[in-house]
Simulated scan of single mutants.
Amino acid sequence: MTINLLATQHLAGMDLLQLADFSSESIEGLVRLADDMKKNKGNYANSLQGQILGMIFEKSSTRTRVSFEAAMLQLGGHAMFLSSNDLQIGRGETIEDTGQVLSGYLDGIMIRTHHHSRIEALAEAASIPVINGLTDAYHPCQALADLLTVYELKGKFKGQKLVYVGDGNNVAHSLMIGCAMTGMNFTLTAPAGYEPASEIVEKAKEMAARTKAKIEITADPCEAVKEADFIYTDVWTSMGQEEEAKERLKAFAAYQVNDQLMSLAKADCKFMHCLPAHRGEEVSASVMDGAASVVFQQAENRLHAQKAVLYSLMKK
């Protein structure tokens, strides 16, 4: 407990917009804190008593909404669901004005939105912690839950190899940064035109140079998964990309995570997915529902990772 607090106590009042906002020590501290909160739930009851988290949703969600709301309740606080359809930002009020107004009512804000610049503007205007529940560029809370899952299964990060198969999207960006910060080797395999943003790859490589991790991007999924400890995928068509669905199904046809691809990795390789999953597209049902799958452990860990974030940023 002492180690966890020493690594995270300085985060009080800060925003979490992307993992790179924090130090590697703080990220690992959040993971260890989340692990302790999962094992010793009662030790943290009422730690955020009387505090209110406002949850702004401009994109729909299952895991983000339920896990954040449950997290606040378990910590003794309260969470308010704020749909953009019910707020004045849905009718033209600026995100900056919204941030200043909500700062007078709440103790923290979680927002799930589109352009990353939007959450940056909100955080700049707000005087309370702002947490990224997802933007088009990053999904840091998902990556923290993924790191917690790795930590539970392996007890360490360094020397592990995680391979992401599929679209270089917001989940891939945060996962790549998280791996680089904790010393995990990260390989992403995607067809041409669907690679992660080059500036984020460069940022990850700079971090990896300090932690001795390897960051690799390749178009060959069979080569990529060799010696993998974890194989991770996400849907091929994310929210807002529905018009590209047919084109994406064709482009990613050779990138399905199935039994054949899993057989090329280590014998004890685990399968990860941020959910929701489309069986028969990015992953076969046999892998999704097989013995190597840890996807529901990941999903539960959203709750515990977010409790660690809320506790560290909002505790008075």
Results as ranks from 00 to 15, higher is better:
residue 11 L to V: 13
residue 263 S to Q: 14
residue 15 D to W: 01
residue 72 M to Y: 06
residue 42 G to W: 08
residue 22 F to Y: 15
residue 162 L to T: 03
residue 240 G to N: 06
residue 120 E to P: 09
residue 156 K to T: 13
residue 297 Q to V: 14
residue 290 G to R: 08
residue 296 F to D: 10
residue 233 T to I: 12
residue 63 R to Q: 10
residue 305 A to P: 03
residue 107 D to L: 00
residue 216 E to W: 04
residue 72 M to R: 09
residue 214 K to M: 09
residue 213 A to H: 03
residue 242 E to R: 04
residue 11 L to Q: 07
residue 42 G to V: 07
residue 277 A to C: 09
residue 11 L to S: 00
residue 105 Y to M: 14
residue 289 D to N: 06
residue 312 S to N: 09
residue 152 E to M: 10
residue 113 T to C: 11
residue 204 A to M: 05
residue 255 Y to E: 02
residue 18 Q to M: 11
residue 136 D to F: 13
residue 122 L to M: 10
residue 47 S to K: 10
residue 168 G to Y: 11
residue 311 Y to Q: 01
residue 264 L to T: 06
residue 164 Y to S: 07
residue 257 V to Y: 05
residue 206 E to K: 09
residue 170 N to Y: 01
residue 136 D to G: 08
residue 118 R to Y: 14
residue 203 K to M: 13
residue 250 K to E: 13
residue 245 A to F: 12
residue 79 A to S: 11
residue 206 E to Q: 15
residue 169 N to K: 14
residue 248 R to E: 00
residue 129 P to N: 15
residue 296 F to E: 10
residue 230 F to L: 10
residue 20 A to V: 06
residue 179 C to H: 10
residue 258 N to Q: 09
residue 159 G to C: 09
residue 283 V to S: 11
residue 210 R to I: 04
residue 245 A to W: 15
residue 193 G to H: 12
residue 20 A to K: 07
residue 52 I to G: 05
residue 174 S to I: 03
residue 2 T to V: 12
residue 313 L to R: 06
residue 167 D to F: 08
residue 266 K to S: 01
residue 233 T to F: 05
residue 8 T to I: 15
residue 174 S to D: 09
residue 281 E to A: 09
residue 99 G to I: 02
residue 220 D to F: 04
residue 52 I to P: 03
residue 308 A to K: 09
residue 113 T to Y: 13
residue 302 R to Q: 04
residue 74 Q to T: 01
residue 199 E to K: 15
residue 311 Y to N: 00
residue 231 I to F: 01
residue 171 V to N: 04
residue 107 D to S: 12
residue 176 M to D: 06
residue 278 H to S: 03
residue 104 G to E: 11
residue 263 S to F: 00
residue 281 E to W: 00
residue 277 A to F: 02
residue 146 D to I: 08
residue 73 L to Q: 06
residue 136 D to S: 14
residue 112 R to C: 09
residue 129 P to K: 03
residue 56 I to P: 02
residue 300 E to P: 00
residue 150 V to E: 02
residue 5 L to A: 14
residue 205 K to F: 04
residue 43 N to Q: 12
residue 222 C to M: 15
residue 125 A to L: 00
residue 211 T to P: 02
residue 111 I to A: 13
residue 198 S to P: 13
residue 173 H to C: 07
residue 211 T to N: 05
residue 134 L to A: 12
residue 313 L to I: 08
residue 142 Q to W: 00
residue 36 D to P: 03
residue 170 N to G: 07
residue 300 E to L: 08
residue 294 V to Q: 03
residue 110 M to D: 09
residue 13 G to C: 11
residue 111 I to W: 02
residue 100 Q to D: 14
residue 53 L to K: 03
residue 94 T to H: 05
residue 59 K to F: 00
residue 228 A to S: 02
residue 36 D to Q: 10
